[in-house]
Nucleic acid binder design. Structure first.
Lengths: 305, 305
DNA sequence: TTGTACGCGTTATCAA
DNA sequence: TTGATAACGCGTACAA
């Protein structure tokens, strides 16, 4: 593997001149440029990416912390992130945590070690206090509404969308609802908001009307069994695929509402909230590369069917 | 940001000793190790990842070339890849091409520039001849059966699974079928195999019984319209989500068969092929990190419903 | 327009 | 068990 010094030696010019050719610096005579390019071609020279990154101090790489892929919520978000990152010449590296706090911290350490130019946290496994100090190492974007931050947050409008759904429930005369959620309210802002609003809107609501750890369609089926004897009239789910799992077990049993506006909800004629996750991912990248600053709440659509 | 030399200066020991502490090298006296660790802690020192990568010549990073995310096929594959990579201490960076050959080559150049320890090509935009030379820069794994390679390929068993489906069609007395495909047969081995076998099994088959560029559920709906007057009895699709799109437009009109074994196919009671994409992704990583060698064809399941 | 020399932050070799 | 020093490969002030 030839390096820049080899090219310098082979052409008889200096390392800097070769570097200028590599970087399209105009201050190189045409003749030398041609010759240098010829030699580079001949020995199949390719500048080392890591060395450049070290020298310049930038990697053109954005790290994305998420629990896992192959889940509608994160895949949508990721789609927006990759699209936007790509358009700006950034690559995206996946940092899967499976919600393990230790693993997440290891990634934060890597970020601190300058592995990525920026970090996007789509969902976290540690308390926010653990993460905040790492902001001194570079840009960290949160896909979550962190109240005491005025910059670097982009989030879907859970607060308003859920209120609209719950108001809709009331209009339909519904008194008692169940909800499905992904994980304990400790860290998930979605869980926190959902539970709070459920209590606000429904005096009948209680902790045993929550079906936790609900991630997949299969989990949705189990949720259906769980709610069978709970006397709820409607179920507010944490995803269309979950809603579909529930609906498949007991069609028409409850007013089931999903999220994400997946095709499956159209197919089953289930109402759903489109939280514009794709746009959220794109905004996250804009924040990550400092193209934008501030906090951004995405608009949403409640699709009634 | 303190560096290793700062730590050396601050502790009064040499850079090498500090490096040994960082890397848990046993040849350091306990007293020095303690003191060095204390100072590292105090000034919040974190070894620079890029510098280590440059020095060692490895990045612990696997690049994955794919057209886009948020598509069942690639999301499944990616899920297997991230899981397996994670378990082995590798990170995964997404290299989205959107099927642009130029972009793909740019990624290959980055690979040649030592940006990744290995490359996994899940789908390509260039002819195989363009890619092969890059194997001299490091490990490249193809998720595709490349006949004249005896190593570094892992692929789903399209040949046999499609034969089984087509045989099943014949058993059902079906004489004329339509197929949906993602993109031109030039580069997609799936398209190539499907078209070849369709001709082999069905004398009635012709090019106008192919609905191309079929990627999403919405495309599936268009496919349904396309096949409305083609007189086909069955449609072999390139994905359960596409199959669902077709089925939604004209339930029971055709015998529709999907692929990927998504939940939606269970819901609609559509037959499907489970190609074990997750396992394919995991195997790709094992090949990438040289834990395995050779070619691997994944087993499949034809799920009749 | 060109070249020298140093910085980027580590790891590895070798001598002590 | 330690430390000096040379890689690793590139970018870039600075001087010429």
């Amino acid at each position: 593997m030839a390096n820049i010094r080899d090219i310098a030696r082979l052409t008889g010019y200096s390392v800097s001149t070769v570097s200028r050719v590599i970087n399209n610096n105009p201050y190189v005579s045409e003749e030398k440029r041609r010759k240098i390019l010829a030699v580079m071609e001949e020995v199949n020279y390719i500048p080392n990416y890591t060395a450049r990154a070290l020298s310049v101090g930038k990697t053109k790489n954005i790290g994305v912390i998420l629990p896992f892929v192959n889940h509608p919520y994160f895949d949508r978000l990721l789609s927006g992130i990759t699209t936007a990152a790509f358009a700006r010449g950034y690559k995206v590296t996946l940092l899967a945590t499976n919600y393990d706090p230790q693993v997440e911290e290891a990634y934060l350490q890597e970020f601190a070690a300058k592995s990525f130019d920026a970090l996007i946290i789509t969902s976290r496994a540690n308390p926010i206090e653990t993460l905040l100090p790492y902001r001194s190492y570079g840009r960290i974007v949160f896909c979550e509404n962190i109240s005491y931050l005025t910059d670097g947050c982009t989030y879907i409008d859970r607060e308003e969308s859920i209120k609209e759904v719950f108001t809709y429930f009331k209009e339909q005369g519904i008194q008692k609802i169940g909800v499905t959620l992904g994980r304990s309210r400790k860290l998930s802002s979605n869980s926190k908001i959902t539970v709070r609003l459920a209590h606000d809107y429904f005096s009948t609501f209680s902790e045993d009307l929550i079906f936790w750890d609900c991630l997949t369609e299969e989990d949705g089926k189990e949720a259906a069994a769980y709610f069978a004897d709970k006397g709820v009239e409607a179920i507010f789910t944490n995803g269309d695929h979950v809603a579909a799992g529930i609906q498949s077990q007991a069609p028409g049993e409850w007013l089931v509402i999903g999220r994400d506006n997946l095709y499956i909800s159209e197919l089953l004629q289930l109402s759903t909230i489109d939280h514009h996750l794709q746009a959220c991912g794109e905004t996250a990248v804009q924040l990550a590369v400092m193209e934008k600053s501030g906090n951004y709440r995405m608009p949403y659509e409640f699709i009634k069917r």
